[in-house]
């Protein structure tokens, strides 16, 4: 008869899955390539498009302003493999016949991916040091901006994980995630709101504007740590993770 397992708690099992996933980024060149490209593009956006030096202001606005667009392409690239790779290689059968609950599997994978993006984001610390050397920025605003950026990255990831659960094909997972994330970004842009203006009621217009990443992210980047903005991202994450779990359950056989 089998030895009684010693630890089968939810957190304990989630932790085991989390560590395996996080390690897998560093087992291949994925982590290195991704970090390099993220830092390179973030640099270009900040210094060339954002005019970091020309503005002559000691803040990181030009750095954070482009994160939604960086994430738009880079986060789906991380998320696309989360479930479609498991389905394609058949390891999903192994994973889901272990005594592991669906929520532990979804959460372990998601948290590992989120932790990885947090590590990449943390690698941008030299620009924080730079701006502190050059002037005296409001470091509270910068902390709030990092928080906003991390929350937004997590939401992109949750969307990408859900889409990844729907297909075995990573290219499809990538493209569909980009489109869904794009819609969440542009919902708040004046051009989109202008399109709806006049033929939908003001309430609907407010809902569209409110559902945008940008509205909530920009508030955080301005240093306004409103609980509602944080809750917005957390509840979106929860929604997409649950949707992902449902998707895995219904699609795993195919």
């Amino acid at each position: 008869m089998s030895t009684a397992p010693l630890a089968t708690g939810f957190l304990s099992v989630t932790g085991v899955l989390f560590r395996r996933e996080l390690k897998s980024y560093f087992a291949t060149p994925v982590a290195f390539v991704f970090t390099f490209i993220f830092l390179f593009l973030a640099g270009i956006f900040t210094f060339y498009l954002g005019g970091f030096f020309e503005r002559g202001q000691a803040d990181l606005q030009p750095f954070f302003a482009y994160h939604p667009y960086l994430y738009l392409f880079l986060i789906p690239a991380i998320a696309m493999r989360l479930w479609s790779e498991e389905r394609k290689s058949g390891t999903i059968e192994l994973l889901l016949t272990l005594p592991v609950s669906m929520s532990a599997a979804v959460l372990g994978k998601f948290l590992a991916a989120w932790c990885f993006t947090a590590i990449v984001l943390a690698c941008t610390f030299p620009i924080w040091i730079t701006v502190n050397v050059l002037g005296s920025p409001d470091n509270g605003v910068i902390v709030a901006s990092y928080l906003g950026s991390l929350l937004m990255a997590g939401t992109f990831l949750a969307i990408g994980a859900c889409v990844s659960a729907l297909t075995k094909n990573q290219v499809i997972a990538f493209v569909v995630s980009v489109v869904v994330c794009f819609l969440f970004i542009v919902a708040g842009l004046p051009v989109v709101l202008g399109f709806f203006e006049g033929w939908v009621s003001q309430d609907v217009l407010d809902i569209i504007a409110m559902s945008s990443f940008l509205t909530h992210y920009e508030a955080l980047v301005r240093g306004v740590v409103d609980v509602r903005n944080v809750l917005y991202f957390l509840s979106l994450m929860a929604f997409w993770l649950v949707a992902g779990a449902v998707a895995i359950d219904t699609k795993k056989a195919a």
């Binding site: 397992p5 304990s12 395996r20 897998s24 272990l98």
Partner: peptide
């Protein structure tokens, strides 16, 4: 099926962990 980027040692350690062994 097994995770291709892991070694058998890592993979078996993962499965043992997921089965609650510490």
């Amino acid at each position: 099926p097994a995770y291709p980027d892991m070694t058998p040692a890592e993979f078996l350690d993962f499965v043992a962990g997921a089965r609650g062994f510490r």
